[in-house]
Design a protein around this nucleic acid. Structure first.
Lengths: 160, 160
DNA sequence: CCGAGTCAGTTGCTTCGTGCAACCCAATGT
DNA sequence: ACATTGGGTTGCACGAAGCAACTGACTCGG
């Protein structure tokens, strides 16, 4: 992505994309939301080039979506945590997840489903629990492997 | 964006981003949803390079998000319409719009608000009408200039 | 005491996507 | 007759992304 801004656009969608529209950015946020917090862990999980991951993390920290916290000194090692601003991307992520599930489906069903922590109900792409009907936020839900997950994990193992 | 795929990612978010994660793609969808249908109109509105717009439109047609329909022959001229798959990006777009509004706000308020056609109520970032409480879809809603629109339109005029 | 491994990057090189400007062609306006 | 519009295509320069190698401080096993 040459420049990451969209000059002249008067629209909050364009503003949002200036921050999270770069390649990999949203997937990094997704992974951190799922509990990956360390450089190598993110790099291996995403298959992203290390230099690119480095610049993306820096930018996400600058933009206040991630917070970089040391978890040990000498040698200094860091973990990345989502800020409120980063966590607030949850509705956008599950909307995209829903769209992907509907239109480019995996053969054995979705590899990931979102469930309401409290009641265990499945969460729709609008972030509404289909069992209890509540409107949820990031902290109310959890991602679990879906029906399509096993076959794919197997295929990934075999290709190694 | 170098390659538009994310190899090895078992996730519908990654699948979705393979299709609409490229720079400009989502803004093109937004503009077509707002009624811009022709090449020059899109090009001027977005300030995108013509060759890039050309390749993006081709890809969006290939991926079945847009449909290219002739509206006259000799010379052949085309308009671009959203398919159901394209229209179904609406929840993702308003989720991003909501995030942008909350976290990178314009000084005079949002430049665009979404309203329920039927009752005129404002639509939340989950696509729920705040007046009648209904869960809405793309066709139920309309984008209108918001409180921050006038000042910005004025500024845009002056910079010309 | 020595070598292998881990973690979080940085550096250098190459390739490919992007922006910019110019060009094309048919039809229409004046 | 000439300029303008619409919908592109072509050529070039530049910078972002991918890949691989390297660094530097520490830990762990033998």
């Amino acid at each position: 992505m040459l420049r990451h801004d969209y000059p002249g656009q008067i629209c909050s969608i364009a503003k949002a994309l200036e921050v999270i529209g770069e390649r990999w950015s949203l997937l990094i946020v997704r992974d951190v939301m799922g509990g990956r917090r360390r450089f190598d862990d993110l790099q291996k999980g995403l298959g992203i080039a290390r230099n690119v991951l480095s610049t993306r993390l820096q930018r996400l920290v600058e933009e206040d979506l991630l917070e970089r916290r040391p978890y040990q000194e000498s040698p200094p090692r860091y973990e990345y945590f989502l800020t409120e601003k980063g966590l607030d991307l949850w509705p956008s992520l599950i909307a995209l997840l829903g769209w992907g599930d509907r239109h480019t489906p995996y053969p054995d069903g979705p590899p990931m489903v979102i469930v309401h922590k409290e009641c265990g109900g499945q969460v729709s792409d609008r972030g509404i629990c289909e069992r209890c009907g509540n409107l949820l936020h990031a902290r109310d839900a959890r991602a679990l492997p879906g029906p399509g997950a096993e076959a794919l994990a197997l295929a990934a193992q075999q290709s190694e």
